[in-house]
């Protein structure tokens, strides 16, 4: 065990205690958390800075507004319902189509109008929010999967996580939904995580449940060596997240839309550490390097250039 600890340390793997004690607690002011814990506010912030986000169709704050839900959704054949304060992808329902009073979920299951209303009620009552506080339900644009990812994701839409420290993108991965993860891009639930080379935007080896995999288990297509489209834009946008939220250590989640390109989905103030497994690399040395050069990294372009210079995949 001690040996493993020593080897992890020499590989600069960041543990959760160190992440909290040295990065999130000192660099992320508590008052900034609401900006990212509430997805509606993050969306407003991003729009104010001209960062593309999935279009917001409507917000439901109160139980009685549920009645408007129907009219609101008449206009859109597909949409996503999500809690504003949800975490870990909990409570997100993606509707891909409708047949009369029935809504079809991304996995083919069908929801009745009552099911949908109940789900919205649960969101409002705080079932998915941190600490069970009352919440809002967001209705937004359902992202259309980019053809590049079509072959390597099962049902859902992959998302791209970039960890940003002091405005410098330090590590990135793409999370690919599988049958086991039920179309959700959540590593805990069995989604695949593939590291992305910061310099080129090309995917590296992938990891699924701590096992290295080379192909999508459901489709059989290789997952490494794929060029992620719009990579430069995403890198630059992620660097701008520092100015957007003010958080020192954060994770930005993007989705790639077939038509609209890279959209900022949400920002996380306590990004997980699994990204290290997906990249087969530790975060700690990269974070230390950024901290050392903090003074010279003022503009967005400087920071992106710094990342490209130092954080190439080995």
């Amino acid at each position: 065990m001690l040996n493993i600890a020593r080897r992890l340390k020499s590989a600069d793997v960041l543990g959760i205690n160190r992440r909290n004690a040295q990065y999130t607690l000192p660099h992320n002011a508590r008052r900034l958390y609401p900006l990212v814990d509430n997805k509606a506010r993050t969306k407003q912030l991003a729009m104010a800075m001209g960062i593309p986000v999935p279009e917001l169709y409507g917000i439901i704050d109160y139980e009685h507004q549920r009645r408007n839900l129907h009219e609101l959704l008449e206009r859109y054949p597909d949409f996503v319902v999500k809690p504003a304060r949800g975490s870990g992808g909990k409570g997100i329902v993606m509707i891909t189509g409708r047949q009369g009073q029935l809504y079809r979920k991304v996995n083919g299951q069908v929801l009745s109008w009552d099911d949908l209303k109940h789900h919205v009620s649960n969101i409002l009552a705080g079932m998915y929010s941190l600490g069970g506080q009352p919440d809002q339900a967001l209705l937004e644009y359902h992202v259309l999967i980019d053809p590049v990812f079509q072959a390597i994701s099962y049902q859902g839409v992959p998302d791209i996580r970039i960890v940003i420290f002091l405005g410098v993108p330090v590590m990135a991965m793409v999370r690919l939904p599988t049958r086991q993860s039920e179309g959700k891009a959540n590593l805990h639930q069995g989604a695949i995580g593939a590291g992305i080379d910061i310099v080129t935007g090309i995917t590296l080896d992938a990891v699924r449940k701590n096992q290295i995999v080379t192909e999508q288990p459901d489709t059989g297509f290789p997952v490494s060596g794929i060029q992620v489209p719009h990579w430069d834009t995403m890198l630059k946008t992620s660097a701008r997240c520092h100015e957007m939220t003010g958080l020192g250590y954060q994770g930005a989640d993007f989705v790639l839309d077939r038509d609209k390109g890279a959209l900022l989905l949400e920002v996380n103030a306590r990004p997980g550490l699994n990204i290290q497994i997906a990249n087969q690399a530790g975060l700690h040395n990269r974070l230390k390097l950024v901290e050392q050069h903090q003074q010279s990294l003022k503009s967005v372009d400087d920071r992106v250039a710094f990342a490209r210079q130092h954080f190439a995949a080995q």
Binding site: M1, I4, A5, R7, L8, K9, A11, V13, G15, I16, N17, R18, N20, A21, Q22, D205, V207, N210, Q211, I212, L273, Q276, I277, Q280, A281, G282
Partner: peptide, 20 residues
């Protein structure tokens, strides 16, 4: 202020060492 690894993290991140 303990910032070392958690014992169970050692198991979790072991996959990372196999490559290196």
């Amino acid at each position: 202020r303990y910032s070392g690894y958690r014992l169970l993290e050692l198991i979790r991140f072991r996959a990372l060492l196999r490559g290196s």
